[in-house]
Write a protein that binds this DNA or RNA. Structure first.
Lengths: 212, 212
DNA sequence: GAATGTGAAGGTTTTCACAGCA
DNA sequence: TGCTGTGAAAACCTTCACATTC
């Protein structure tokens, strides 16, 4: 939770740096990030003291500290498994590059795709996964394969020594405790909207416990 | 939180229905969903009593009740604004259709795109948004425009009477309290991975408060 | 005996309130 | 005076323990 918000602060700070603003208060940063100022202060306090009492936070200073906290001082090399609709879109997605993530290789099992180059990214056969990931020194992998193959791919990745996985397959996959797995389930996000549209009568505190 | 998990239970139940299983215990359903059985029971208890003590839950029965709770008894008509890489991929994405969401219309401002049909979905000019959304009786909209246009699009949607928005633009947007907004920020997910890779030394309970 | 449903306990996260400092 | 940093309080969520039912 904290980390997601710190990431958002980082986004907001970038925009402010570009705008040439120097100083910001926690309340203001909170407003721009969609949370209360006290939350901002507590979140940052977890990592140190970055502000000046009575003044606020120096934006470029805070930005560089937050960047370091997030481990985003250098760019990350990323691989992607499953070059379907979603996978191709992610390979072409400018946002990843802008925020410091380079998808430099991709994998699929489809013989008609393997060997092709899409958006400067080669598509290799999944059988080469372990070797290529080790050679290219990749630490983060995105899974965009159909649900039924996701666990198998995750197993391959774990075997290849990957410690961070972003999974878009709509299924529960398991990895060892020392591997970080994050799941993004697109339809599930829409289902949450469906729920709230269907239960508009529920209000505020009733909704709180149901959220996210 | 509850809703996200109930959505996952719904997925698991579908698979079990297909497999022809009849009955499942909360512990088993929890294991398949990635949470403890007691969580499953509490989550379901929020909406009623669906099981039989000493026995478990009747799968097809629970499935249909959960479907109703989520508001997924009927299909939802969805619009998408911003037919770029990501937007096109979502229009083509099978997953949405499989889980009951039909993207039936899309919008963009790019004159070279407007009027085209992609994957059976017409691309209309954003200026037609309000009228088309009303005519087509659309209740849910996906935003996949660049960050700098996201707030403007959200304002248009609110003006058009939309009450549920799924935003993929990496920026904080504000909507009135009666509008449900969910944000999916792809790079932010990767940043969370970056953080954990960078701070492997933090263990378990230290990490807990940082997680999402 | 087995598994649900649920009040109570235990944790975690957020918010409050204010001391401390520019 | 203004705003950060932070213990304490409040709110929230998860897990436990067990009475209840099949």
């Amino acid at each position: 939770m904290v980390i997601t918000r710190v990431s958002i602060y980082s986004r907001v700070l970038s925009i402010l740096v570009d705008k040439g603003v120097d100083i910001i208060s926690s309340d203001e940063l909170g407003k721009l990030s969609g949370c209360p100022g006290t939350q901002v202060r507590k979140d940052l306090a977890y990592f140190g003291q970055f502000g000046t009492r009575g003044v606020g936070y120096n934006i470029s200073d805070l930005k560089s500290k937050v960047t370091k906290i997030l481990g985003m001082s250098e760019r990350w090399k990323v691989a992607l498994v499953g070059v379907g609709n979603l996978g191709s879109a992610f390979i072409a997605h400018e946002g990843f590059r802008r925020y410091g993530f380079d998808i430099i290789i991709s994998f699929d099992t489809d013989k008609s795709k393997v060997g092709k180059i899409y958006n400067n990214v080669e598509i290799k056969d999944v059988s080469e996964l372990k070797q290529v990931i080790s050679e290219m020194n990749i630490k983060i992998v995105i899974i965009t394969v159909p649900a039924q193959f996701a666990q198998k791919v995750a197993d391959l990745l774990v075997d290849a020594g990957i410690k961070a996985i972003l999974n878009f397959a709509p299924i529960t996959i398991s990895v060892p405790k020392n591997v970080i797995l994050r799941n993004v389930d697109l339809s599930l996000e829409l289902e949450a909207l469906s729920f709230f549209l269907t239960h508009k009568e529920l209000q505020d505190n009733e909704l709180s416990m149901l959220y996210i």
